[in-house]
């Protein structure tokens, strides 16, 4: 008798998803047992990929994102001669979800790429001059690629978290510029340049050719740490961190990104079937504040950095 009830519930869930979901919302709970305002279990691990120059693996419930940073050298443009750049790409490979079939990037992934890029290249969040090697000659490019390994709703929050963790995990190697103008991180060449610089300092004379460009190893750091929370609206109920099943039933989504000082880095509500009143927007901001308190210790632990509240 009980198995037929279980089958009925599963069938109801598939055929009438909206009504099924409404029954739970009316009781202020969700099918996976969470209250409306609770996010799924979150974990952050840095250094997941050894071949990358910086990486992080983030899980929010089943949603898994892995971010890797690869460093390369570019020649800065004339109007931005003392900065490098961060190129963010969020990819949803076909393995992450049954709904991603073709090779073209999904709209969700492109949207997430652009929004994360905007946040991470803003001067108040990340100082791009850290990536400068020699003004006008060479600068670092940090290719930050974020792959979704399992798409169970709320890609954006996980992607942003992975991006922030991976970027903070990057240590720029010491580099020097060779005679042909190419930058190299080859340890032998760098050691030689370091020795030359030391000699020049000790003897107090300047190299006739001019001082060779040499930078030291340093860790990348963010000026402020942005953490986001995506909420969905369904019949007036505000639902935090929607999973994939819930995402299909939402009227609209609102993403709020805050930094440690409580400043709004982004409030994103792209259209949707309903509008959001000021009250709802303020609720979202409040929920994001609580989420920040939840997630920042995870980042702190992983990166071993002190982050001021």
């Amino acid at each position: 008798m009980s198995t037929s009830h279980a089958l009925d519930a599963e069938a109801y869930r598939k055929i009438y998803p909206a009504e099924f979901y409404k029954k739970f919302l009316d009781e202020k709970v969700r099918p996976d047992g969470r209250p409306l305002g609770r996010c799924r279990a979150t974990s952050v691990a840095a250094g997941a990929v050894s071949k990358a120059d910086g990486s992080a693996l983030v899980k929010i419930g089943n949603t898994t994102m892995i971010a890797g940073v690869k460093l390369e050298i570019m020649r800065p443009t004339d109007d931005a001669s003392d900065v490098g750049t961060v190129e963010v790409t969020v990819e949803m490979p076909p393995l992450c979800s049954a709904s991603v079939r073709s090779g073209r990037p999904t709209e969700e992934a492109q949207s997430a790429s652009q929004r994360i890029s905007e946040v991470l290249t803003h001067p108040a969040v990340f100082d791009l001059t850290q990536l400068c090697i020699a003004k006008g000659q060479a600068a670092w490019v940090a290719y930050l690629d974020i792959f979704c390994l399992d798409a169970d709703g709320n890609i954006f929050d996980a992607a942003l978290l992975a991006a922030v963790a991976a970027l903070s995990d990057v240590t720029l190697p010491a580099v020097t510029v060779l005679e042909d103008g190419r930058v190299t991180a080859d340890t032998a060449a760098v050691a030689e340049a370091q020795a030359n610089a030391k000699d020049a300092m000790q003897t107090g004379e300047e190299n006739a050719k001019g001082t060779q460009i040499l930078t030291s190893q340093r860790q990348l750091s963010l000026k402020c740490v942005p953490i986001g929370l995506t909420c969905g609206l369904n019949q007036g109920h505000l639902i935090a961190d929607p999973c994939a099943e819930e995402s299909g039933l939402l009227d609209t989504t609102i993403t709020v990104i805050l930094n440690e000082s409580g400043e709004l880095v982004s409030v994103y509500k792209p259209g949707g079937n309903v509008g959001a009143s000021d009250a709802i927007l303020m609720d979202c901001i409040e929920m994001s504040r609580l989420r920040y308190k939840e997630v920042s210790p995870l980042l702190e632990k992983v990166l071993g950095k002190g982050m001021s509240e």
């Binding site: 905007e118 803003h122 709004l264 709802i280 303020m282 901001i285």
Partner: peptide
Amino acid sequence: DTLTCTTSGLFSADQY
């Protein structure tokens, strides 16, 4: 009700 909202840059909740 706000139908669409996109922001860039940093500011406080009150300013928002």
